[in-house]
Structures are given as C-alpha cells and as structure tokens.
Amino acid sequence: MIKDWVLLGTSENGIDLEMQKSMLSESYEIPAIVVNKKISPYNLGVFELYVHQNHIDQAKLAIVETKN
C-alpha cells in the first residue's frame, strides 16, 4: 500500500466504506481511499479503507461520531 497510509476498516461489499470515505472527505477534509481487493470470479476478498497516518485519530473519531 501507499507509504504512510493506515488501514481504517474493511467490508465485504464496499458501499459502507465509500460512504465513510465521502463523509471523511467532505465533512472533515480527511483524504481517504478505498481499495478493492476482491477476486471477482470467486467473490473472495474485501474492500479496504485507508487514511494517511497523520489523520488516523481524527478519522476514527469522525466515524464513531457518525455511528452515534
């Protein structure tokens, strides 16, 4: 993965991660990326959400706040 980026979460379908990515970017100005690590013919693997290590604490708090 890109140097200094930290895994924040995983998902089977990725829709929830795309929503979290949008929320982080639009509301908190935290850059985030979603990586598709699925093997499509067999539907194995997951989607992964990454943020830069400088924003990991703020991103975790933002996600907890939106779940409450």
Results as ranks from 00 to 15, higher is better:
Phe47Met: 07
Met23Val: 01
Phe47Val: 07
Asn54Ala: 12
Lys3Asn: 03
Asp57Thr: 13
Met1Phe: 14
Ile39Lys: 12
Trp5Leu: 02
Ile15Pro: 00
Ser27Lys: 15
Tyr28Met: 08
Val34Trp: 08
Val6Met: 04
Leu49Glu: 09
Gly9Phe: 06
Gln58Pro: 04
Leu44Pro: 00
Thr10His: 10
Lys37Val: 03
Lys38Cys: 11
Pro41Leu: 02
Ser22Pro: 05
Ser11His: 12
Gln20Met: 04
Val34Ala: 10
His55Cys: 11
Asn43Tyr: 15
Gln58Trp: 11
Glu65His: 13
Leu24Ala: 02
Ser25Phe: 13
Asp16Thr: 09
Glu26Asn: 12
Lys21Ile: 07
Ser11Lys: 13
Val34Met: 06
Glu18Phe: 15
Asn36Cys: 11
Pro41Asp: 04
Glu12His: 04
Glu26Lys: 14
Thr10Phe: 03
Glu48Gln: 15
Met19Pro: 07
Phe47Cys: 05
Ala62Leu: 03
Leu24Pro: 15
Asp4Val: 03
Ile15Ala: 05
Asn43Glu: 13
Ile15Arg: 15
Gln58Tyr: 03
Met19Ala: 11
Gln58Phe: 03
Leu7Lys: 15
Ala32Gly: 10
Met23Asn: 03
Asn36Gly: 05
Val34Ser: 14
Met23Gln: 07
Asp4Arg: 09
Asn13Ala: 08
His55Ala: 04
Asn36Arg: 09
Ile56Gly: 07
Ile63Glu: 03
Met19Leu: 04
Thr66Asn: 00
Met1Gln: 11
Glu18Ser: 13
Gly45Leu: 06
Asp16Ser: 15
Ser11Phe: 04
Lys38Tyr: 05
Ala59Glu: 00
Ala62Phe: 07
Lys60Gln: 09
Ala59Met: 01
Asn43Leu: 12
Asn43Ser: 12
Asp4Gln: 08
Leu44Gly: 03
Val64Trp: 04
His55Lys: 15
Asn54Asp: 14
Ser40Ala: 13
Asp4Ile: 06
Ala59Leu: 00
Ala62Lys: 00
Glu29Ala: 04
Asp57Glu: 13
Ser11Thr: 12
Ile39Glu: 14
Val6His: 06
Asn68Cys: 00
Lys67Leu: 01
